[in-house]
Design a protein around this nucleic acid. Structure first.
Lengths: 148, 148
DNA sequence: TAAACTAATTATAACGATTACAAATAAATA
DNA sequence: TATTTATTTGTAATCGTTATAATTAGTTTA
């Protein structure tokens, strides 16, 4: 399953003339298999033992390459570190404001919003970003206990 | 009109025990009247001549105060400077990927998404963030000309 | 009103994420 | 194999933002 995703991703890169280096392979692999939304530093730390000489710059460089080829989406959070998400199917994120956990959820799509926005503003629309914020069940429970 | 908004904002602050300093007054006033989505530095520069001794920290501090009291919304963009938006009615932003311009547009609301997300993930939902990305008419025209 | 307390501002240093840069290395091509 | 090109590495620099401590202004109390 994730084998397939990796293979497709590598193919995409190959056809756009991007070299597949061991580092790139490893970063992509990690993004897919970790099933999480790691920061550049998370990725760096996770691969440090396999690539003792790898530079943080390499991680950032390649995440940019992946973003530009559409394989990876960058989730930005102001002064805090960006998180990177391997693009699979259309999904959105719900984020716990207490512990920072990010959980995926699917939603049919917001084409209608895009159309309306395009119509009202005259923009040519490319994409959108939607995030829901709240409290995850674990944190909600903790809070409830604290208040007892 | 914007007089009223400012007055309401000041009242909100007063009732929550936040002091109205000249700097705070000026920052709020600027946020409302500029009708834009300025960065902290934009605000600082705009008020520099009226408050020659004002510190950037003051701008940041007060924007945080306003955010916490719900008057202002912070739009974060990774490594780039956050933009601050005086909260009026519910509206969303469409952002030009070419020149960075931010334009407001209204949309009935995405309560349904919040409900679905809450249901699927078990989160307690507080809010959401939606942004549409594309190219503004001006930049689209420029691009068209360049390609001729 | 003066004294005491509290909040806000200021100036500056520090932080942390990200990028720029130049040198070194690896891969692809001729 | 020689040459060109892309990529990586290491490090320094950048920039938005925050922490800190000292100062100032505002509020409360006596």
């Amino acid at each position: 399953m994730s084998e397939m995703q990796l293979k497709n991703a590598l193919d995409t890169l190959k056809t756009t003339g991007v070299r597949i280096t061991p580092q790139r392979h490893a970063i992509l692999e990690y993004l897919i298999e970790s099933m999480s939304h790691p920061t550049a530093d998370d990725i760096y730390k996770a691969l440090e033992h396999r690539f003792p000489n790898m530079s943080v710059a390499t991680v950032y460089n390649n995440l940019r390459v992946f973003r530009e080829s559409g394989l990876v989406r960058e989730l930005t959070y102001g002064d805090n570190a960006s998180r990177f998400d391997f693009v699979t199917s259309k999904h959105y994120h719900i984020i716990c404001e207490s512990c920072g956990k990010i959980v995926d959820f699917h939603y049919p799509g917001l084409d209608e919003v895009e159309h309306l926005a395009a119509h009202v503003t005259g923009f040519k629309v490319n994409s959108h970003r939607l995030e829901v914020y709240g409290t995850c069940p674990e944190c909600a429970e903790k809070e409830a206990k604290t208040e007892e």
